[in-house]
Computed example of a mutant assay.
Amino acid sequence: MKEIVEYTDYRKYIQDYYDERKRCSAFSWQEFARNAGFSSAVFLKYVCEGKKNLSIGSAGSVANAMGLAGYEQAYFVLMVSYAHAKSDKAKRAAFEERCALAKAHKVHVLGDEEFDYFKSWKNSVIRELAPHMPGAKPLEIAKACKPKITAAEVSETLDFLVKAKLLKKDRNGNYHQTDKAIKMAPVEAVPLAARDLQRQMGEFAILSLNLPLSERVMSGYTLGLTSRAFERIKKETEDYYRRVVAIATEDDETEQVYRLNVQLFPMSERLGTGKKCVSSKEDKNEKGCL
């Protein structure tokens, strides 16, 4: 069975624990539930199936039943707390507390670096800028950013990117990307951090409306869609992103760092089936896709 810090879903951890015990003995859901103090013989089975939720109050008892102690027990309780969190802020706090707990015991949490990377726009922008500004000091890189940031923020970001192995520094003090592109890891908390990044970039997109048309590409469509059409457009968008990344990575040189946002989201409640697909385009003086 994997180390507990490799899990983000407490249900999966409970299921793997049960499967491991079952493989080696005549362990049953009834025995498991009894050890954890539940009267229902199938309660934990239903928890694993998503039919029931484990409360934060009973998380410690389940952890004891699985033989967890010390930071492992605390980590399990934090996984349950994360699942119960109602807001992104609460989820973020539970995840960061989990990471801090693991780091205090010199254990790596899956998704930790990825989570930190997506928390701030500075990480992605400086990851693109620094390799194409050889010999530049942090202050020069800071002045090249939009919006402007401090030299101290650049230094902190560069240190993180090197530590996370997203940049490497050569003997001359110049930075190089370890990979051409970054793909989001399949960790529950990473998309949570990515939503923060998308909010930040969305705010910058609004500010960019003040730029001349020669420096930006924006337009928008309002569409009436069926579920089938939505899935097809979603697939087309994913394919489009892959083609864009392929084009962007053809050249080794960079002249300027850009952000590309493609957004498709509902503007009404679901009306039912069989609706005709219609569209209207706004901002006809501009070209491109938003």
Rank of each mutant, 00 (worst) to 15 (best):
V187T: 08
Q15T: 08
C99V: 12
I149W: 04
P131Y: 00
T273W: 03
D251P: 00
K12E: 11
T249F: 06
A246I: 00
E128H: 10
S55E: 08
A205Y: 04
A36L: 08
Y241H: 00
V154C: 03
K165E: 07
A83P: 02
V262E: 00
R127Y: 09
K86R: 12
Y46W: 15
N174F: 04
K12A: 14
A194F: 09
A74L: 04
S208I: 03
K2F: 07
K122T: 14
A93I: 12
E269M: 02
S268D: 12
N35M: 10
K168A: 08
L44S: 05
E231Q: 11
A142C: 05
D116I: 05
N53Y: 02
Y175Q: 06
Q256L: 04
A205R: 13
K2R: 15
T254V: 15
G202P: 09
V125R: 02
F95H: 06
E255V: 12
E153V: 13
E3A: 14
Q73H: 01
K146E: 13
L158T: 07
Q256P: 02
A144E: 06
F204V: 00
Y75H: 09
G173A: 11
M184T: 13
N174A: 06
V109D: 02
K45L: 10
L161Y: 11
V62D: 03
R98D: 02
E153T: 05
L260A: 11
P191G: 08
A189Y: 06
V77C: 08
G224D: 09
F43Q: 03
K52C: 07
M66E: 04
P138E: 10
A83W: 07
K284G: 11
K89D: 14
R242H: 12
R98E: 04
T178H: 08
V190R: 02
Q256Y: 09
R21M: 15
C277S: 15
E286K: 01
N285A: 14
R199S: 05
V80S: 05
K163Y: 08
S155Q: 14
A102N: 05
T222V: 12
S124F: 08
L290K: 07
L260Y: 10
D252I: 12
E97R: 06
H108F: 02
S39R: 13
Q177F: 01
I182L: 14
V278Q: 06
Q15C: 00
L166F: 15
F230A: 03
Y240L: 15
R92D: 14
D251L: 15
A189T: 12
D88I: 05
G224K: 07
L260W: 05
A181E: 12
R11W: 04
Y13E: 03
I4A: 01
E253Q: 13
H105F: 02
A104F: 09
Y18K: 00
E97T: 05
R270S: 14
P134F: 01
K168D: 08
K163M: 08
F43M: 05
K287H: 08
Q30A: 15
V244T: 06
S279Y: 12
K163D: 11
E140P: 01
N64V: 07
L44H: 07
R243D: 15
S28H: 02
M133N: 06
I233H: 05
Q198Y: 07
A164W: 04
P138I: 06
A229W: 09
L197C: 07
I14W: 02
V107W: 03
